[in-house]
Design a binder for these strands. Structure first.
Lengths: 226, 226, 226, 226
DNA sequence: CATGAATGAGATTTCATTCAT
DNA sequence: AATGAATGAAATCTCATTCAT
């Protein structure tokens, strides 16, 4: 059925080739973000990149491969940008606030691309997970280090990392993607208040609590210390 | 193209018709969850529903309309289920914990359908937003009421609602969809610890802090250097 | 990669469907014969059949399947036609002559189709072999029966069948396909002369010769019996 | 489209150029045999020849031209090889046997290329006919000469040549290409028996029978029953 | 109400060929 | 002479939707 050859895929490596390839990646970023993975056609991408249709297949074996590359690129850039943003900040709370702010700025600047990631789930699940896990793991490690230094309360670091990512993601969707940016700063402050102190009224954080059995914690916080 | 919700479309209303319609909705739920919106064909759905291809168009004007109905159904059911789960619980923290747990159970039981929602963004954005806003608004109201009663610290309720939704969403993805359910309870406890008390070590929750101007907070306030 | 469903292919079975299907098969016969397998496009076939392009895929999963069906059809018809032609003829030589003549007539009437078979080798080798073997086997059996009755000299029947098929095929190519039909009858007579008596001058057929060792037969025919 | 053989095409003539050209022809031989004309791509050929894609068009104006050259080469080599094989053999029957054997050996050694010829029919019919006619004509002449010398019965030489070619072709397909080589010698003996003496039992070859009118021969002449 | 054959626009992908280097 | 990036026409195949029964 498939009379394909057995050679691996190989794309041009000259400078000119690199330029063409980049044009395609950039165009894909824009088109995927605008229309979504399925609705974006190769023709859309090559038209935007101002190359011929066939040129696409000189550089990528198929649409999915390019999509995965675009998503991975996005992840790399986001990671680098956030890393740069919080570099040198020692106050842990300030790291979170700055990181969150940098994340929102990144979304603002790559509004279209950000939407693309959600699509990845049905295109290439591995790539989808990779996108989130690439952050979650180092994030958890840094949080754990902060806990060791006494800068953050001791909470299972992995869970905490995913909670904070969820907060960032949803606020980004609500206040950046959906264009309510006037409320963004207010929301950021409110979120930081929540992240710092939680929802419980007046309670100090319990000191050394190991994750308790769920039942035992029914009445948790009314400790005299408050 | 845009025959939105004001459809001049009229479908059978007999009992038999209702049954056929339901078969289609149920089948669509399964197929959309399994394959995603684009990859799911009408033929897939009618085959699963055990009706003829043409019957689809007796009940729905097009594929998108059915998809939107499925997503809306999903949202309604989730809302109802969570509502039922926390009904009658007075302890606010317990409401959160129970709600989170009910949400995870819902995902477990509708693993495929959960994935459908993310697809909605590029199919019908209104429906996608509706899905989240339907929760966010009442949630914010209930949180505000709890604040009024002094059960929850005063934080911008809308922001808080989206933060909590983000936490639930990401933990659900990480610990339910990605099948690490053995860690689910531990993660739930850790998350509740975070939600209750935040990340800051030992500090009491500040009483009445109004959202400060962003610039003013550049350096953490307790620093005389500012 | 391939999000195909797992259901087997199923084509319409109504009378109308049968008619459409036949139109496609007939058109394919003509187009394949005219252009060859590769050069014949689905669009060519549906255009000739006067149906829409998509209709093709209602009846056949792909081009190859239709091609195989066409070749198999051709083989069936040829077999039936030759069978009918020689039915009731008792003189064995006359059977050969009549069969050859019927074969030539078949080619004349299905000139295009006949060319198709040669293409099958690269399309579906099984189908290609089937085409020839379907004849070779019963042919060899009938020849063997004729040998048992003393109507034909005893020669390995399978080899003999393939020799006779080769003769028919090449004469058909030379004198029918290549349009030298004026010479056809003369060629038929010459071929029959050869088939009946071989090329050796004056020699009677050796009576009971079992297939001798190749070396031993170096000087074969100058036996006194001649 | 029709730049047939009178090409205004000029290729490099240096020694280096000749080497490159030969690499391409050799590679094409292999690739065409393996994949068939249509499925073989220029890229396949240049990859195998270890030259750049563009180099192809330095030596050949298009794919078809190279294919025709390959087929013609094949024909030339086969003719030469068979010529060499029977050189100096005086016994006519032995010439046939040796020629057949040499043909089979040629197929064995160029198994893939043999298949190429059948493809030629739809690529370039002239080349296809040329392939067979190049043999048929000298073959017929030699047979006629043998008849003049009384070594072979007098049968229309052209017809006889095509019959013998058909026999060789079909036996080659059946017993060499389809890998039943263990039976090859036996088949060769059986075929020679048939070729020498025909199928008719015991009968002496009729002496001077001119091709009779077809109608007159309806009933075999020796049968009183008619 | 229900059916399912028919439609055709549109998507992906291949590859012979060109041409600037 | 040789290169290989770029081209775009053309082919296969899918599927939402229509409509006659």
């Amino acid at each position: 059925m498939n009379r394909n050859s057995t050679q691996a895929f190989s794309a041009p490596v000259t400078a000119r080739g690199q330029r063409t390839r980049q044009k395609l990646v950039d165009a894909a970023e824009a088109i995927f973000g605008e229309k979504g993975y399925e609705a974006a056609s190769i023709a859309d991408i090559t038209r935007k990149a101002e190359v011929a249709l066939g040129t696409f297949y000189v550089y990528f074996p198929d649409k999915k491969t390019l999509f995965v590359e675009v998503v991975d690129n996005l992840g790399d850039r986001l990671r680098d940008e956030l890393g740069r943003a919080v570099e040198g900040i020692s106050d842990r709370v300030e790291v979170e606030r700055t990181g969150l702010r940098a994340f929102f700025r990144f979304i603002q600047e790559h509004r279209l691309m950000y939407r693309v990631v959600r699509q990845a789930e049905f295109v290439d699940e591995a790539c989808y997970r990779r996108y989130y896990q690439r952050f979650a793991e180092p994030y958890a490690h840094r949080l754990e280090a902060a806990m060791d230094e006494g800068l953050v309360r001791r909470i299972d670091p992995e869970t905490l990392a995913w909670c904070l990512m969820g907060i960032g993601d949803f606020l980004g969707m609500r206040y950046v993607l959906w264009r309510h940016e006037k409320q963004l700063e207010r929301a950021l402050d409110a979120a930081m208040d929540f992240i710092e102190h939680g929802i419980v009224v007046g309670g100090p954080a319990p000191a050394r609590k190991k994750t308790p059995s769920p039942r035992a914690r029914r009445a948790p916080s009314r400790s005299p210390k408050t």
